[in-house]
Design a binder for these strands. Structure first.
Lengths: 134, 134
DNA sequence: CTCTTGCTGAGACTGGTTCCCACCATAACG
DNA sequence: CGTTATGGTGGGAACCAGTCTCAGCAAGAG
């Protein structure tokens, strides 16, 4: 009795859109883009879709500095982290084995169990750096 | 012409309160606590104060999962990270030299400069673990 | 085909945060 | 020490992301 989300036009359109994008987008941006494409999808539906997708590990979620949640379809389905360009939004997926080992070790040193971690890296990518110094 | 915040009763009271606490608190919680103490400080003022304090590095800010900002007066004024107990909120400050070195190295490997990082650890502390298994 | 059940969407609602603006206290200046 | 400009204060309105409501609809089971 596993709960599998029903396959609907709206969900398909949202996934399609996410496939086309390679940067993190907010639910509101996705909604706008869908409307621009001419499909009539409700904002609430977009929220529900990205939420269920993220629960199933099909998309990754990040929180921006101003508290907005942004979503991205990721190549790696396993746990990983992101290195995001602060200027153009280009995102690189990182396997963070080393950082995870560090986290577990630090937790143990302070008597903490089940240590989860939030690790995100923000930098300036090579091409933006070049553009800035030009 | 450096902008130094004016010293007022309200700001002093907020800092005092933060000194007494050793867990992260939201602006709203701080506001409530101040009112409970009998001091009439506006909510807007609390927001302004914690904001300016965090900009000056006098308090640390974290975002909870539901998008609330929480604040804490930290012992270390230099850059550091936190290991928070998910059950009791107990917080340990971590010097994360190793993680930072890793972040810089990963950034460089992908051609990224000025790599900032967000690293937070959440776990279950020894005493909460004991209480849970009791 | 029919029925059940989950999905949809418009708009109302919530809760955290910021803005507005008249009033007030601080600090600088004479 | 009084005056003044400047920035802080506070209450409420405004804002915005996100959630809830509920009637209508459509996917999938039987």
């Amino acid at each position: 009795m596993v709960v599998v989300p029903r396959q609907t036009r709206q969900r398909a359109e949202i996934l399609d859109l996410l496939e086309d994008l390679d940067e993190f987008r907010s639910a509101q941006q996705l909604h706008e883009m869908l409307r621009a494409r001419g499909s009539s999808v409700g904002l609430a539906t977009v929220y529900r879709a990205v939420q269920s997708l993220s629960e199933h590990g099909d998309v990754d979620v990040l929180r921006t500095e101003d508290g907005e949640s942004v979503y991205r379809r990721c190549a790696q389905r396993s746990h990983h982290h992101h290195l995001v360009c602060r200027s153009c939004g280009r995102t690189v997926e990182i396997d963070a084995g080393q950082a995870e080992a560090w986290a577990a070790q630090v937790g143990a040193a302070h008597g903490f169990d089940d240590v989860d971690h939030i690790i995100e890296l923000v930098g300036t990518c090579a091409s933006c750096r070049a553009a800035a110094t030009a």
